[in-house]
């Protein structure tokens, strides 16, 4: 790894990290740090915020202002930091259970509000930290520690949820496509408003093992073989059973803080 990337980490005593061998979170973190570096941002320009879970341990490894909040509460906590420091880049890193179950209400309302922040959702289809229970993104029928006979519930499509809630930028990639993922994170950070990047990731220790998906390499091969880009989808059936990657949604809408400042100016003129 090049020195510029290493310099952005808390290399003194935070490593080795707690992630399992073969976990996809490291790849996503790598793509995120490279995206920050290539965007010309220093570590003083950013604040990295997380909730609770495996992916939520990422901020602790990065030498920046880092905010490890409560389970599901990364987004509302980031809302407070962003409104106090509108010039700083808020990067939220969250797992599927954290962001979409316990934090689901905050997620949809932040998307609606459109305060400028970038949410990186590392979706490994289960709760890893607690040992592999089913999450809102576990596909129906797939096994988890609390779904020993297969998951009864239907899964969320986080990207559709983001689009439906008002996010101005929504994209998806996988831990196999890390340069692609890096590019999407750069775009998301540049976007003025609520941006979501979903990263389909492997949990070979739990979800992968429980569903006999093989080791991390096998799971990455699966992502490689089953992903198609947005432009390859000509009609809806092309996407069936596939991971659609790329920019799914990119619109313009008034950003919350800018709108709020106009309200302040109006109130001050009266």
């Amino acid at each position: 790894m090049n020195q510029e990337i290493l310099d952005r980490l808390r290399m003194d005593d935070r490593f080795p990290h707690i992630l399992c061998p073969g976990c996809g979170i490291g790849s996503a973190m790598n793509a995120m740090i490279r995206a920050i570096a290539e965007s010309g941002l220093t570590n003083d320009d950013i604040c990295i915020i997380s909730g609770i879970g495996c992916s939520s341990r990422v901020p602790g490894y990065i030498d920046a202002d880092t905010f490890h909040t409560l389970h599901g509460r990364a987004i509302p906590s980031a809302t407070g930091v962003k409104l106090a420091h509108p010039d700083k880049e808020m990067i939220i890193i969250a797992g599927d259970g954290d962001l979409l179950a316990i934090g689901g209400n905050h997620f949809i309302h932040a998307a609606r509000r459109n305060l400028d922040m970038t949410v990186i959702l590392i979706n490994n289809h289960n709760y890893g930290m607690t040992g592999g229970q089913y999450s809102p993104t576990t596909p129906q029928g797939k096994r988890a520690k609390t779904a020993p006979y297969g998951c009864v519930e239907r899964a969320f499509d986080a990207c559709e949820m983001g689009i439906g809630s008002g996010a101005v930028f929504v994209a998806r990639s996988t831990t196999y496509h890390t340069p692609h993922l890096k590019g999407l994170i750069k775009q998301a950070m540049k976007k003025n408003g609520f941006a979501l990047v979903e990263v389909i990731s492997q949990c070979p220790t739990l979800y992968g093992r429980l569903n006999r998906m093989g080791d991390a390499v096998k799971m990455l091969e699966y992502f490689k073989e089953n992903s198609i880009t947005v432009s390859q989808v000509k009609e809806p059936k092309d996407a069936e059973g596939k991971i659609v990657i790329g920019v799914l949604h990119d619109i313009e809408a008034p950003e919350y803080y800018e709108s709020y400042r106009k309200v302040c100016e109006h109130a001050q003129r009266r």
Partner: peptide
């Protein structure tokens, strides 16, 4: 969300 936003702002 209210208390989390408040704590975030105060920490900032």
């Amino acid at each position: 969300a209210s208390i989390c936003a408040m704590v975030g702002a105060s920490a900032a």
